[in-house]
Amino acid sequence: MTTRRKMQLSFIANNIARKATFRKRKGGLVKKMHEITTLCGIEGCVIINDKSDPQPTVWPSEEGARKTIERFRSLPIDEQNKGTVNQESFTKQRLEKMEEKVKKLRGENREKEVTLKMYESMCGDPLVVSSTLNANECEEVINMLSRHIMEMDIAMETVRNRNEASSSNPLP
């Protein structure tokens, strides 16, 4: 099985190659629309206008396309615009997602930095390590240590409860 390589999307300068690609892609687009309408039981149409051909390619037929477009136009404006985005709103959405991702990664990195400082202070001389930290960093390390101690207390309590339950219920 051969995998298809990713194609670089850019204008095809060679006229003959561009026309050949257009013909293939046009046929593929019509075929895909036929497949999706058949498989999903939806109504759809394709209209492809080629400047070298005065007559546009219309699928399934001019009447079918006209009927689909009229049905779409009869919908309320809100329904017509549902799911559509312009370049500006699309870019804003992407930017917000990326900013959220950066914020999350910064938090994760900060957590790792504090964890590293906590381990350094536990393994090395705490006075030497703490002298390299500012007040906020010292507080972060203390908070992390407290959190780890609480988690260990909970884990130990769970083990104790499990051991007590198993020792109080001897097997018959």
Results as ranks from 00 to 15, higher is better:
Glu139Lys: 15
Ile69Pro: 04
Arg5Glu: 14
Val102Ala: 09
Arg94Met: 07
Lys103Ile: 07
Met118Gly: 01
Leu95Lys: 14
Cys123Val: 06
Asp153Tyr: 11
Ala20Gln: 12
Asp153Gln: 13
Thr21Asp: 07
Asn136Met: 09
Leu29Ala: 02
Gln55Trp: 01
Glu100Tyr: 04
Glu35Met: 04
Arg106Gly: 01
Asn163Gly: 01
Lys51Trp: 10
Asp125Ser: 12
Glu79Ala: 07
Leu133Gly: 05
Glu151Gly: 02
Glu139Tyr: 09
Lys51Gln: 04
Glu96Phe: 07
Gln93Ile: 14
Pro172Met: 05
Met7Thr: 14
Asn136Gly: 13
Asn134Trp: 14
Lys104Tyr: 07
Met150His: 15
Cys45Met: 08
Asn14Asp: 15
Ile154Lys: 09
Leu127Tyr: 02
Ala20Leu: 07
Pro54Asp: 11
Met1Cys: 10
His148Lys: 14
Leu116His: 11
Asn14Ile: 06
Leu145Phe: 10
Lys31Ile: 03
Phe72Met: 11
Ser146Lys: 15
Glu113Met: 13
Leu39Pro: 02
Lys82Arg: 14
Asp78Thr: 08
Ala17Arg: 11
Met152Cys: 11
Lys6Asp: 07
Ile48Gln: 08
Thr57Pro: 03
Gly41Asp: 03
Lys117Met: 11
Asn136Leu: 08
Glu137Trp: 00
Thr68Met: 06
Ile149Gly: 03
Val102Asn: 01
Lys101Phe: 06
Lys51Val: 01
Glu108Lys: 15
Gly107Pro: 07
Asn15His: 13
Glu137Tyr: 00
Asn161Gly: 08
Met156Ile: 07
Arg110Gln: 09
Leu39Thr: 03
Cys138Ser: 13
Ala135Pro: 00
His148Cys: 06
Ile154Ala: 09
Phe11Arg: 15
Arg106Leu: 14
Gly44Gln: 02
Leu75Pro: 07
Leu39Val: 03
Gln87Asn: 04
Val128Glu: 00
Ile12Asn: 02
Cys123Lys: 11
His148Thr: 03
Asn134Glu: 07
Lys103Asp: 06
Ser167Cys: 03
Thr38Trp: 12
